[in-house]
């Protein structure tokens, strides 16, 4: 009896120790990884596209106050090769930006996003974060250089609906012979929880010789994202707010 009672009493303590050890170990590994990155990377530089890795790291850390992003399906994305990731987007959700930051953190490689303005200071700041102009040639150049690029579909206020995917940008990916991945994003204006689920690469339906190929691929990507949003289900805050129709699936 006493031994049994001892086990009952000891269990939470042991569990607590394990938890503490785990937390310390994770924190230590995080610090050591961060130290390695700091020492490995040269200070005061930007890359070929003007992305500042130090600023990105700082903004990624700050973004954790707003978003706690869970990235799934990132195993589909290659560590070195170029790819275009298309995400669903809603107004003011900044889905392409938080997706790029989160995927970059998950893969430990630079990820760029499409849609920076070309006016200072917002455009300059976006460029430092890895922003590209919303121009097919710009995207094609980055993809050809082996970069991972995130672009957002048009904003759509409806839940589980995805806006139109710019076929010209998808065409840039086809021209650069890189795969196009659909990715469903979900975030909530009321909580930090956000999720990105990257699907397997979308294949063109049939072989076309003309620009119809990119139109069809853009539509297929859109369909794939919608399907993934259906599979993700609703996001819950665990509060009565869930009873209101503001669950904001799709990144509001």
């Amino acid at each position: 009896m006493s031994s049994s009672l001892g086990r009952v009493i000891n269990f939470p303590a042991r569990r607590g120790t394990e938890l503490a050890t785990s937390v310390v170990s994770r924190a230590t590994s995080g610090i050591s990884a961060a130290t390695t990155r700091f020492t490995a990377e040269q200070t005061a530089t930007v890359d070929d596209w003007g992305r500042d890795p130090q600023l990105v790291r700082m903004i990624t850390t700050l973004s954790h106050f707003r978003w706690s992003v869970t990235v799934g399906g990132d195993q589909h994305l290659k560590r070195r090769k170029g790819a275009l990731v298309v995400v669903n987007a809603r107004r003011f959700a900044l889905a392409p930006i938080f997706s790029a930051l989160a995927i970059s953190e998950a893969l430990d490689r630079p990820v760029r996003f499409v849609g920076r303005p070309d006016t200072a200071p917002i455009g300059s700041f976006s460029r430092r974060l890895g922003g590209l102009l919303d121009h097919p040639d710009e995207v094609a150049g980055a993809l050809s250089a082996g970069e991972l690029v995130v672009m957002g579909a048009d904003h759509d206020p409806r839940l589980r609906e995805v806006g139109i995917v710019d076929h010209a940008l998808v065409g840039a990916a086809m021209l650069s012979s890189v795969p196009v991945f659909p990715a469903a994003t979900a975030s909530n204006p009321m909580s930090r929880n956000a999720r990105i689920e990257v699907g397997s690469a979308t294949r063109p339906g049939r072989k076309r010789r003309g620009p119809l190929a990119e139109l069809e691929l853009a539509d297929r990507v859109r369909d794939d994202i919608e399907l993934m949003l259906e599979e993700m289900g609703e996001m819950r805050t665990g509060t009565p707010l869930d009873w209101l129709p503001i669950t904001a699936m799709g990144g509001s």
Binding site: G50, D118, L133, D137, G141, A142
Partner: peptide, 12 residues
């Protein structure tokens, strides 16, 4: 110019 490509290639 405003809107010019960030890294223009030879075909720009």
């Amino acid at each position: 110019a405003r809107g010019a490509l960030t890294r223009p290639s030879e075909s720009a």
